[in-house]
Design a protein around this nucleic acid. Structure first.
Lengths: 147, 147
DNA sequence: GTTATCTGTAACAGATATTGTTACGGATAA
DNA sequence: TTATCCGTAACAATATCTGTTACAGATAAC
């Protein structure tokens, strides 16, 4: 299964934006993410539609985090990127009326629901501020002069 | 993200095979799964390599469940199909030395590990027998004459 | 008002993974 | 010897994210 790296990238860049405070162009952000400005505009566009960042065109324009780092959770970003289930159960639909298929699907459905609940709780409990603080501590652990 | 339907399909068909008791051809199994015999041979081949089913070629050949329904868990099937992580965290690798990227990845890694642990526990606690019993009860709930 | 910046989007190729098909070689029992 | 069946290669179809190029529209500087 291929992983979707947008959530990790958005967490990364939003924390940078929150720490820097000002407006950043998609060009600069694309350098932070080692990718293309269009990819940045495409993905940040979803966050703008959910009121997490704002964009401004023209000279001096760019992207800015609207809410405080304390007010944004990992779950907020996840929901902005994808409204559906995070861990959809991989069910089969070969013979929907077959009791065995239904029982198999039911088992998978319940297990995935429990896993998703665990994931959602942690996503909801983690703010961008906490990530920023982890990063600052990490930075202190490995001073440039010593590492 | 596209889902991988092999686990659900294998649970479905293994329960049928366990209840029927005998040997089934990939042609018949493909009808249970509403698909192609080659898909069946491909997927059941992975289970054979893990000692869950056996295959025999030639006339009268086919596939047979080697272990009892009580002895096979959902986790056994999952592991036979895919040895890797079930819920790999979608991390970014844009700037591996950036503390912010590392902190973001760390948060995602821990959350997914917790979710996967929950999922594994349920997979390990569910046997094919339990699925078979659920199917039988389900069948009783909706008698053909009434449904 | 012209120009240099920036965003918004369409369009298309590339990578990856499962699924569906066809084709054919090899093995086994009647 | 023949009718079955598995094993596997090969290829197209599908789906999703990603990377790129191209261009239209908006905005501030001059």
């Amino acid at each position: 299964m291929k992983t979707d790296g947008r959530l990790a990238r958005m967490l990364h860049v939003l924390v940078h934006m929150g720490l820097l405070g000002g407006r950043e162009t998609s060009e600069r952000i694309s350098q932070m993410l080692n990718t293309n400005p269009v990819v940045v505009r495409r993905t940040l566009g979803a966050l703008r539609d959910h009121g997490i960042v704002e964009s401004e065109g023209g000279r001096g324009g760019g992207w800015k985090l609207v809410r405080s780092l304390d007010e944004v959770t990992v779950l907020d970003i996840q929901r902005a990127l994808n409204e559906g289930a995070i861990l959809p159960a991989p069910l089969s639909r070969d013979h929907p009326s077959c009791p065995v298929e239904r029982a198999s699907n039911s088992v998978l459905q319940m297990a995935h629901a429990a896993a998703e609940k665990e994931l959602l709780e942690r996503y909801a409990a983690t703010t961008l501020r906490q990530i920023a603080e982890m990063a600052i501590i990490d930075q202190g652990k490995v001073p440039p002069k010593l590492a």
